[in-house]
Computed example of a mutant assay.
Amino acid sequence: MSLTNQLMIDMKLAMKGHDKTSLSVIRMLKSGLMNKKIELGHELTAAEEAQVVASQMKQQKDSLAQFIQGQRQDLVDQTKAQMAVLEKYMPQQLSADEVQQFVNQKAQELQATTKADFGRLMKAVMPELKGKADGQLVNKIVKELLK
């Protein structure tokens, strides 16, 4: 079942259950998917759908950090609830160990050993991990590897 179909089913359930948080997140996600579809000019693939969901999650994480910094507990709670709903639609994320193994393998393939190789290694790693792992985690692992 495609993500769009799943969102339609979940939207109906949220409406019937008067779940305003889920409903707003689903609408936001549907809007993001529609915008991406219009931008690309074709039906979205599963990978493109996952990229949209990951982008929405990143926006929520950024907002959460801002709200924590601004000491807005009401918005922190609301954002955490929205993130919990979004989590259902996120693709399965790789663990830190799996990311570490993948980065190590790519580093060996590219013979990347110094900080000067950082950009080259990131360019090789990120397209394959996009949507499967948090970019900040990948960045941290690559930096630690290339000390």
Rank of each mutant, 00 (worst) to 15 (best):
residue 2 S to F: 09
residue 3 L to V: 04
residue 3 L to Q: 04
residue 4 T to P: 06
residue 4 T to S: 09
residue 7 L to G: 13
residue 7 L to W: 13
residue 9 I to K: 00
residue 9 I to G: 03
residue 11 M to H: 12
residue 12 K to L: 12
residue 15 M to P: 10
residue 15 M to N: 14
residue 15 M to K: 15
residue 18 H to D: 08
residue 23 L to E: 13
residue 26 I to V: 05
residue 27 R to K: 15
residue 28 M to P: 02
residue 28 M to Y: 10
residue 29 L to R: 05
residue 29 L to Q: 04
residue 32 G to H: 11
residue 32 G to P: 08
residue 33 L to G: 15
residue 34 M to L: 14
residue 36 K to N: 05
residue 37 K to R: 12
residue 37 K to Q: 11
residue 38 I to E: 13
residue 39 E to I: 08
residue 41 G to I: 07
residue 43 E to G: 12
residue 44 L to F: 13
residue 44 L to T: 13
residue 45 T to P: 14
residue 46 A to D: 03
residue 47 A to P: 04
residue 50 A to K: 10
residue 50 A to L: 09
residue 51 Q to C: 01
residue 52 V to T: 09
residue 55 S to F: 08
residue 59 Q to S: 09
residue 61 K to S: 03
residue 62 D to H: 04
residue 63 S to N: 11
residue 64 L to N: 06
residue 64 L to M: 05
residue 66 Q to H: 07
residue 68 I to S: 14
residue 69 Q to R: 08
residue 71 Q to E: 11
residue 71 Q to D: 10
residue 75 L to A: 15
residue 76 V to I: 03
residue 76 V to E: 03
residue 76 V to Q: 01
residue 78 Q to W: 06
residue 78 Q to G: 00
residue 79 T to I: 12
residue 80 K to F: 10
residue 80 K to Y: 11
residue 81 A to R: 11
residue 82 Q to R: 06
residue 82 Q to G: 01
residue 89 Y to L: 00
residue 91 P to I: 01
residue 92 Q to P: 01
residue 94 L to I: 11
residue 94 L to E: 11
residue 94 L to F: 13
residue 95 S to A: 05
residue 97 D to M: 07
residue 101 Q to K: 02
residue 102 F to H: 13
residue 102 F to I: 12
residue 103 V to A: 07
residue 106 K to P: 11
residue 108 Q to P: 04
residue 109 E to A: 15
residue 110 L to N: 14
residue 112 A to I: 15
residue 116 A to F: 14
residue 117 D to C: 08
residue 117 D to K: 09
residue 118 F to M: 00
residue 119 G to V: 09
residue 119 G to W: 06
residue 120 R to N: 03
residue 120 R to A: 01
residue 121 L to C: 07
residue 121 L to Q: 07
residue 122 M to E: 13
residue 128 E to T: 05
residue 129 L to M: 07
residue 129 L to N: 03
residue 130 K to I: 04
residue 130 K to R: 02
residue 131 G to T: 10
residue 136 Q to P: 00
residue 136 Q to W: 01
residue 137 L to W: 03
residue 142 V to W: 06
residue 144 E to S: 14
residue 144 E to P: 08
residue 144 E to C: 10
residue 146 L to G: 09
residue 147 K to P: 10
